[in-house]
């Protein structure tokens, strides 16, 4: 199988979450190529990243969010590109998930889920864009 890259730009609005999911999981074949458990991981990662970008990236929402899906024989990768304020979510301290109820808040849980469920997560600043790239490795075919 050849490597392919497809991208689409959406308004960075939570109303488009269904559209992001359909583009990545259905139109681009994640559901066909990955085991159900990994599709579920990808589903969680997509929501967490999109919610973050739509909530925080733009001072005057909504901006734009470009999704680039890269398929290769080895991996299924998704890059999220926004031109909001520079922000590297991987720099944020991970929450201490061993604390008791009274000391817990929900901050940082989204990106923690992304880090634990994806095989790779990379942030880079590309000119005026934030790039967050997540990778799910494809199971080896027999």
């Amino acid at each position: 199988m050849e490597s392919t890259v497809r991208e689409r730009t959406f308004p960075a609005s939570l109303d488009c979450l269904g559209g992001f999911r359909a583009f990545i999981l259905e139109e681009n074949g994640a559901e066909e190529r990955l085991p159900p458990k990994r599709v579920a991981h990808l589903d969680v990662a997509i929501e967490e990243i999109v919610v973050n970008i739509c909530s925080y990236a733009y001072e005057t929402p909504p901006g734009k969010l470009t999704i680039r899906v890269e398929e290769s024989p080895e991996a299924f990768a998704v890059e999220f590109l926004d031109n909001g304020v520079a922000f590297d979510p991987l720099e944020v301290d991970e929450p201490d998930v061993t604390r008791p109820l009274e000391e817990r808040d929900a901050g940082g849980l989204g990106i923690l889920l992304v880090r634990r469920m994806m095989d790779e997560v990379h942030y880079s600043r590309k000119g005026t864009l934030n790039s967050l790239r997540i990778v799910v490795k494809t199971p080896r075919e027999r």
Binding site: H41, D43, V97, R99, L101, M117
Partner: peptide, 17 residues
Amino acid sequence: SGVVEEVIGVSGFDSFL
């Protein structure tokens, strides 16, 4: 079960609930 159980585990919610 499944991804729900994983999310609860990763977040540590099973340590205080």
